[in-house]
Write a protein that binds this DNA or RNA. Structure first.
Length: 412
DNA sequence: AAATCGGGGCG
DNA sequence: CGCCCAGATTT
């Protein structure tokens, strides 16, 4: 046997060792997760969409609620979109929920409500990419397809000491070829789950528990002592900060005891979610970035923004500040309480609304080009605490609204 | 290839 | 407080 052939034989042994020991370990260590209690392709699919960029512990309660409310593909396909979004409230990446419902309609109409088990059909579902397709095909149908997520790339890059940048596209393709080779005959479902389970429980990003690892003795990174410097991944660009002025408008007259919310546009950030109205804060005088806008200037800007959006309310004072972090933006919301101008009183109290008397005041240019805000003109509602059940809010507004209603209650 | 899309947990 | 996570879609 040539040296080259011996080397190949050794590589093959290392792969066989990995697969067999990992599979063995999984059978003893796998967690009891709600979507593992049945082999229902619909459950597997829902869980995999929820698990995109989201931790298991976060997903569990959402998954249980979701399948209780939408037990079948058809019930999801036929549900009002607002109910699906409400079920997703707080989980983030809300396009996942809208894509999922769209895909449920695809499954209902094209496949008679049965989740398809062939590659092209699964890939064709909205919101299902390379990872999720592989996960559904392997976990639900035991098809020998790779399911490579960040977790799997971390495990493979360490065990095989691969220094490819996992943030790059071609790396995932390379990892998929490798992962496919490793699947033991007839064991795609268990093996792919084992790979992810190892990444979640043992081969963790920061301090991997190598001493508990079933494949430590042939882990190339461990043997080289470089396991904590893998995988190689280019750092993400830091999110840009955005200062915004938000209005907590309390109702008068027929709206007494209620708060004004509005719905975001059909597409883009937080699409179709509900929120307190808010607009970019003008830069503070004096230039220093991040400097707090003087209250008077903030009140004036908010007053003009409200009027331009067709909301008749008077800003009264600063209430609180809140932060909301996205992957690419950080909002700092300065929240001001505002009082609705009573529609009936308006014509009678011209003097009392002095700031509004200058009807000829030109509209403030909220954007440099003078265009209006895409958020302005969305649907508006006056709600009390009970009404919050009917609208889906991003977490930051959920917390603000709950806190407001708590405080309003205590003052009575 | 790069940007857009949330939110939380952890060392 | 920086870093990361069971990614897909759009540009």
């Amino acid at each position: 046997m040539t040296t080259h052939e011996q080397q190949e034989q050794q590589e093959q042994n290392v792969k066989l060792f990995f697969s067999s020991h990992l599979l063995e370990w999984y059978h003893g260590q796998k967690r009891d997760l709600p979507w593992r209690r049945h082999r229902n392709p619909y459950y597997i699919w829902i869980s995999e969409i929820m698990l995109q960029q989201t931790r298991v512990d976060t997903v569990i309660p959402y998954f249980n609620r979701f399948i209780e409310r939408f037990p079948t593909v058809e019930s999801l396909a036929d549900a009002p979109e607002e109910e699906v979004l409400k079920c997703w409230e707080g989980l983030g990446y809300y396009s996942r929920a809208r894509n999922l419902q769209h895909a449920a309609q695809q499954v209902k109409e094209l496949y008679g409500g049965q989740v398809p088990d062939d590659r092209d059909a699964v890939f064709g579902l909205k919101g299902v990419g390379p990872y999720t397709a592989g996960a559904i095909l392997s976990i639900a149908f035991n098809r020998p397809e790779p399911a490579v997520d960040g977790n799997v790339m971390r495990v493979l890059s360490r065990y095989f000491l691969l220094e490819d940048d996992i943030a790059k596209g071609p790396t995932r393709v390379k990892m998929e070829r490798l992962a496919a080779e490793l699947i033991p005959e007839g064991e795609a479902s268990h093996f792919n789950q084992a790979l992810m389970e190892l990444g979640a429980l043992v081969c963790t990003p920061k301090s991997p528990r190598c001493l508990l690892c079933p494949v430590m003795e042939h882990c190339a990174a461990r043997l080289a002592g470089c396991e904590t410097s893998l995988p190689v991944k280019t750092k993400a660009k830091p999110p840009r900060p955005e200062e915004r002025l938000a209005a907590l408008v309390t109702g008068s007259g027929e709206h007494a005891g209620r708060v004004l919310i509005r719905q975001r546009p059909q597409s883009g950030l937080l699409a179709r979610m509900w929120e307190l109205p808010h607009w970019p804060a003008p830069p503070a005088e004096g230039g220093a970035a991040g400097a707090l806008l003087p209250e008077a200037a903030a009140l004036d800007r908010l007053r003009r923004s409200l009027r331009q959006a067709g909301i008749f309310a008077r800003p009264e004072g600063h209430w609180t500040a809140a932060e909301h972090t996205f992957s690419h933006i950080v909002w700092t919301l300065q929240v001001y309480t505002c009082r609705e101008e009573d529609a009936l009183a308006l014509p009678l109290a011209a003097e009392a609304r002095a700031p509004y008397a200058a009807a000829a005041e030109p509209p403030v240019e909220l954007f440099a080009d003078g265009s209006e805000h895409p958020e302005d003109g969305g649907a508006v509602r006056w709600i009390n605490r009970e009404d919050m059940e009917s609208y889906a809010f991003p977490n930051v507004f959920l917390k603000l609204l709950n806190r407001y209603f708590d405080e309003a209650e205590q003052q009575q």
